Simulated scan of single mutants.
Amino acid sequence: MLADQSLTIRPIHSKADRKAFIDLAFRLNADDPNWVPPLKGEALGLITPEKNGWFSHAEAQLYLAERGGKIVGRISAHIDTLALTLPAEQGFGPGVGCWGLLEAEGRDLAHALIATAEQWLRDKHMVRALGPISMSIWEEPGLLIEGFDHPPTIMMGHHKPHYQEWIESAGYRGVKTLYTYDLDITKEFPPLVGRIIAAGEKNARIRIRKVDKSQFDKEAAIILAILNDAWSDNWGYVPLTEPEIVDVGVKLKPIVFEDLIRIAEVDGEPVAFMIVLPDLNEAIAPLNGSLFPFGWAKLLWWLRKPKVRTVRVPLMGVVKRLQSSRMASQLALMMIEYIRRSAVAEYGASRGEIGWILEDNQGMRSIADLIECKINKKYEVYERTL
């Protein structure tokens, strides 16, 4: 516990504390027109061990800062035991802990909260801190450092510009930049892309198919197998565990639409996938975090057949053995084009967002350049030796 005059930073334990932890973000971001209030039930689930499968291989301590009886700041400190087993060159590794979910009324308070999280990590024998990561790498990694002028899409974070200076002045340096790309999907792709797609369509070995939602578990297993192979060498990759897979299935199944998720097969073998989600943030933004009294009805109606401006590509992957081949790009472009057509025709979308993409993922960045995407947001993951 840290105390400074009337300031107290204390670990949270109760249900009421968790509620206060969530409510603070609503108060501190109320003046930001581009902040999207999360559904409070979802936000509480993230920080409640009984409701988040990530805690099956992780531990966390959340802190609240109070001054004069008023909640003025928050932070999480956490350790992913799976991440500790990974090679250090992939971002985590032995002795690496994390912090995230930072909200604070001022710079000095932010420094005090970060110092508190760091001490918890030291007490757990961690020697290096990464942040902000909230809380799994699969949720909201990184701090927004560019792209404050428009709202985030589903499952992406949004932060105030001054947080960058607060974190860097606490002794942190950027270790990895993550990009999201913006694309006008009402326009046809350049002629070269069209020729690549047309050639793929003439190749009898290739099949691009929609997922079958009636076989949800089977399709999810196919996608997960490709993901684990395709992403296994990526910076920050931590394998999803069975409890997390169950959680993801429950959360995403309502916004899974068969024509927006494609699996590529070569000679009958699934070798690539692409997941696109309608931007749920467009539907929940007006609800201010609550499904009551009428928010649930509005959301259910929207989910029947969403009409959205934006769709997001959170995940795509090609098996490792094909990643350096021309076919990898061809499969990716075919899936992008087929989903683009469906997104425009069936969901009224006009904009796509791809990412996040690691700064050194040259394969994906080349595809983004080929279809004339533009970087619209940058997120930074920071590190510091403890």
Rank of each mutant, 00 (worst) to 15 (best):
V256H: 04
V193I: 15
W166D: 12
K253G: 07
S169P: 08
E168W: 02
L240R: 01
S214W: 15
P239N: 00
V175A: 09
P151L: 10
P243M: 03
D184S: 08
E242K: 08
L227V: 07
D212G: 03
H150A: 15
A230R: 00
L240Y: 03
P239Q: 00
A204M: 13
I197K: 09
H150W: 15
V248I: 14
A220K: 11
G157N: 07
N234S: 07
W235P: 02
K253R: 14
L178V: 04
D212L: 06
E244C: 02
F148H: 08
F257I: 04
G147I: 05
L178P: 01
L143H: 03
D184R: 05
K218D: 09
P243T: 10
I245M: 09
P161R: 00
I208F: 14
F148V: 04
E165Q: 05
E258N: 08
F216R: 12
S169K: 11
E244K: 02
L143C: 02
S169W: 09
N228R: 12
R209T: 14
V193H: 10
D217H: 15
K210L: 11
D184F: 12
G236A: 05
I197E: 07
G200L: 11
E258D: 12
E258H: 07
K202E: 12
N228Q: 12
A220R: 13
D229M: 02
V193M: 12
K218Q: 14
L252E: 10
V238I: 07
F148R: 03
K210S: 14
A170E: 09
T177M: 04
G142D: 06
L144M: 11
A199L: 05
E146C: 06
V211E: 08
P254L: 11
M156Y: 11
Y181E: 11
P151E: 09
W231M: 02
L183D: 05
A225H: 11
G236H: 01
T241Q: 02
E146V: 07
K251V: 14
D149N: 15
P152G: 12
G147P: 06
E244L: 00
A199M: 01
S232I: 10
